[in-house]
Every structure is written in C-alpha cells, then in structure tokens.
Design a protein around this nucleic acid. Sequence first.
DNA 1: TTGTAGGCGTTATCAG
DNA 2: CTGATAACGCCTACAA
Lengths: 347, 347
Amino acid sequence: VATVKDVARRAGVSTSTVSHVLNETRWVSEDLRRRVRDAADELGFEPNAVARSLKIKRSFTIGLVISDIGNPFFTALVRGIEDVAQGEGYTVILGNSDEDVDKEAAYLRVLSAKRVDGLILAPAGEAHEYLRRLVMADFPLVFLDRVVPDLPIPAVLLENREAAREAVDHLIGLGHRRIGMVSGRPQITSTTDRLAGYRLALADAGIPIDESLVVSGGSRTDEARLATAALLDLADRPSALFVANNLMTIGAVAAIQERGLAVPDDVAIASFDDFAWADVFRPTLTCIAQPTYELGRAAADLLLRRIGAPATEPPEHVVLPGRLVIRESSGAMRRPAVVAASRPARP
Amino acid sequence: VATVKDVARRAGVSTSTVSHVLNETRWVSEDLRRRVRDAADELGFEPNAVARSLKIKRSFTIGLVISDIGNPFFTALVRGIEDVAQGEGYTVILGNSDEDVDKEAAYLRVLSAKRVDGLILAPAGEAHEYLRRLVMADFPLVFLDRVVPDLPIPAVLLENREAAREAVDHLIGLGHRRIGMVSGRPQITSTTDRLAGYRLALADAGIPIDESLVVSGGSRTDEARLATAALLDLADRPSALFVANNLMTIGAVAAIQERGLAVPDDVAIASFDDFAWADVFRPTLTCIAQPTYELGRAAADLLLRRIGAPATEPPEHVVLPGRLVIRESSGAMRRPAVVAASRPARP
DNA sequence: TTGTAGGCGTTATCAG
DNA sequence: CTGATAACGCCTACAA
C-alpha cells in the first residue's frame, strides 16, 4: 500500500506538502495541490489512520460498553450514539458486559489501550478499581441509563422514579390496590429508582406496602417469568403488576398466560419500555415509553462535548422524562375498589 | 501517561526487555521480569495499542457494516459476532448503512483507513467502486445475510429459498390457494431468494402465480403496512400472506388489524424471522426462525480464519437452514379448499 | 541472557 | 510558499 512518502516522490514534493494538501492545513500553490492529488489518486493512496492517531494522539473512536446489544432498549441507544458519532467523524467500538463487572472492566481496559477518545458506559454495578482509575485520570466518560452513585461523572438518564410513580399511579387510579412489582437487578440504579417510584406512588395513595409483592426478575425474561409465577401463586394474588423493563414484561405475560389468566381482566399490567409492536399484538401494553434514541444521542453529544473541552464545570446530568402510553393491558379491576368508582376503565 | 521507555528506565533495563517481558516473547531472567512488572504496575503502564498496531500492522479490530442495528435481526447477528471476536481478542467497530450504498462505501473507507484487520458486511446492493477495490486487494471480507452476486467473497447465509418454500408450502397444506407475498427490498439477495422460494412452492403445487399478489414492503414496517393494505383491498383478496421479514410482519399485522380482520381466520400469516415474544402475544406467529446468533458467530469465525490464513481456497459459503415454527397465525382456511380437507386446522 | 537502534506512516517544528 | 527532520510508542532484527 502507498504511503505519504510514495505520494511525495511521485508528485515530486516533500511529505509535508503532501500532508498539508490532503488535510488542507496550510496554503499550497494550485500547481502542487494538483500534482499531489493526482499522485494520491493514481496510487490509490489511503491515509493510515493508525499512524495518524499515534502522532496526533486522537483516534476519533469512542468506546461503548453496555450490558447487551441483544436488548432492544440498548439497541435503540446504540443507534442514537452511532448516528451522532458518525456525524462528527467518530467511529464506535461496541462491547457487551452482560451486567458483569469483570467483563466490563476488561472491556474498559482494552478500549483504553486502544486509546479511544472517550467512553460511554452503562455501568453494571459498583465502581471497580479500573473504573476509579479512569475517573481519577479524568478520562472522558459518560454514564448512560444508570450511574455509579458516588462517582462525579456526567450521565444521561431517564427520570425513572417519576415515570415509575406515574405508571403505578395509573394502576391505582384504575382501582387496583394490590399491585405487585417485578423489579430488575438490584445492583443498578435504574432499578432502585423505579422501585422508589413504585413505593412513592403507593405511599401517596395511602396504600401500605406489602414487601411480599415485590419480587426480582433480574432484568431478564426467564427470571421474570419465574418471579411472576410466584406472585400469581400467592394466596391473595395482586390484581395488577408493575414490571420494570421490556425483557421482564415478556416473561411476566408468559407467566400469566401459562396460568390461564387474562390480561387485563385477571391481572393488569403496566411496564417499563415500549415495543414497536406493542399496539399491534394482544394484549397491547400500557407502558412507560423511553426516548431511547434521544437518550443515545444525548449521551454521545455530552461525550463529544467533553472530549472537545475536557475538565470543565461539575458533571451535568441530562435527565429525560418517560411517557406513559396507555393501552389495554392496564384495565380496571373487575371488582373495582370503592375508592376508584368514579374513574372509567378505559378513557 | 507512561511508556515503555519510562518503565525501562524505572526498572533499570532496556526497552526491548520491557517489551519482551510484557509480551512473554523471549526468555528473561526471573529477576528482571519482576523488576519490569513492578515498574509497570507502579507507573500504571498501559501499552499503547495504536503504536503497537502501527508497528505490527495489525489492529485486532474488525469492522462490521450492517443496514441497521435497530433491526432485531441484525442485533442478534451482532451479538454473535461480538462474542467470537471478543473471545479471539478482537474488538468490533459497528456501522449502519441504512441500506444505502453510499453510506456503506463511506463506512468501508473509514474502516479501511483505520486499518481494521477484516470486515463483515451485509451489502446494501450492488458492488460499488470501493467494494470492488477492496476485493481486488483481497482484503479479508465476509458477506453476511446477503451477497453481491458476482463477487468471489465468502459468505454466511440462510437457506432462504428453501425456507421460504417450506413456509409457503405449509400455507398451501392448510388449504390456501390465494397466497400473497409481502416482499422486501428487491436489491438484496435475501429478498430475491425468498421470492424464488415462494414461486417455487406455488409452482410445485400447481398454483398459477398471480403477480398482483406480490407486493413490495421495502423490508420496512411502514411500507409493509401500506403494501399489505393494498393487498387486502383487492377484490379477491388473498386468504394467506407470506411476509419476508420481521419488520414487515408487524406492518402486515397492523394493516390486517386496521381493517378489522382477524388472524388467522380472515387472513393467515407465515413470515420470516422469529421474535422473542412471538408465542406469548396474539396472534402468535408462524414463522421461519433464523439461527441469528449462530449466523453471526459463523461469519466472525469465517473472517478470523481468513485473517489468520489469507488468500487460500476459493471462497466458501456457509449456508444454515431456517426452521419453520408453527403457531396460530397460520390457520386453515375458513372454507377450506377440497384438496386440503384432511388436514386439521391446528395440530 | 540482554541491549542498541531503526523504522512503522504521520504530523509538526523549524528553517529556507 | 515549501522542505528537512524529529518525534509519536512500540517491536524486532542484529549485536554483544
């Protein structure tokens, strides 16, 4: 493959002239410009970005570590990130941590070794040694979807607590009093925030919290199916369920199905995350729709800004609101509690 | 940040010793090994992969250009690719072409400039100039999901024609005679192969092909919704539909829904691609399940093998079979044709 | 068993 | 306006 040197020789100029012509970084006479460009074309010259990176100490690459690209929620985030990165001349290296702190650390190491210009991370849990090290070195870093509580790192998040509160509130408004929650992995802040919102809604409505109605679905479909089954087998089973993410919702509905129960007549559901098919297939799902694509864009924006002008003001958090989408899965109780008599089942 | 030189100075050895200790690439006395390791730790030394790449001419990075990571089909592929790449010490740069040949070319350029060691591509259409150039240079390349017909490049594909034939055959077996097809983008080979399978099945059953029953859904949900609507508005509408991918299936069902028709009673459906929720939500979908994760793995395997031992035998094609999953969306005709009278509506 | 030194392909400093 | 030349950080003959 051709190098600047080859181009320079062929054009009869110096390598610095070649470089400057190709990068338009200083004035070069029309004549030389032509000759350089022609020579480059003829040789099929393709600048070596690796060499360039070594010299200028920038790779125009960002790292992205999420738990699982297989999860449609992350998929949308990635698309948002990719779009702005691409637009700004950056390229994205993707890594899956599977919610495993060690895998996450391993990935951060590799990406850092590859000298990515910045990192977007959906942290799997607490701060590990290596993450702290990056933070100390104030390496450009942005958290997405969740944070590590005591690290001063900018983040892009959903207003989880508020959204969860709203969803549960909606169920309460429909007359439900025994509302179960299928919660996610306790190690991530999105889970704890959603749980807090659930509690808040119940408290505000004066409904005592029954801890036996809160189960962990581990943020996964299969685990949620089991957890939901347990909930349904309770002597006094909940009349409604709040499910804390997309994957778990599928498991929850499967469990309900398996027991021959119907949504929403036997069990109402409100859940986190929307699906593309959610209003086409039955039961259609009432949910908190997250602006996933925008969250991704925001994270990338934040990171690129940070890369451009590092170490400035205290880290900002971008917090976007969720949107409650009401569909059939959240129905009124069959035997509505007296309190809610005035609200219609479906507006 | 520390460099080999710093480590060498600190350990009181030469840079080559440092390099060799860290890469375990030649025998070094126990004593020096200790000193080097300690010095590296104390300095928090992190080898610069960019410099390394420049020297050894390998980046341990592969490029992956697909049409849209937002499509769950690609998502699963990516996961498969990522897993084997990661396992072999490679990292993956992801790019979305949006089925646009120019965007695709632009990405290939960037990735090539970044000196990725190889490329996995789901080609958006015909061969463009730049793709030909890569092929001429026999750059390690693998096609995934589709091919560019006349390029001698290894590929990992589904047995599309056969799978489509089987799906349509299944509908025929249920008594359907007027079977519509919602087809994908005509530019990609997966589409043409599936279309061929549809034609084959009809021909084998002695059913004349009515071209007005074949519409293009452009591989997208919205376009498929429109195309399906047109099909349903036909004077003599089809009693069954074969839909050529996941995204379009959602659009097709939406169109049916909108007209107040029921699946499968009014219109039966068999489609390409399975969904995680396909047997939980109604109508449950009869489909050709693709081994997406395995396809991804196979592509990565093929590529990495190609990188290790370049330019060997003629390009091999790995072709995996689809699996027909029968659920409720493909039901017998309400007024079954005489021919099919012996088969039950739902096994 | 270890060290010296050159070069990977660019960019950037400093002269001319 | 243009051209030598020295890095960037690492690996690897080649020497010792």
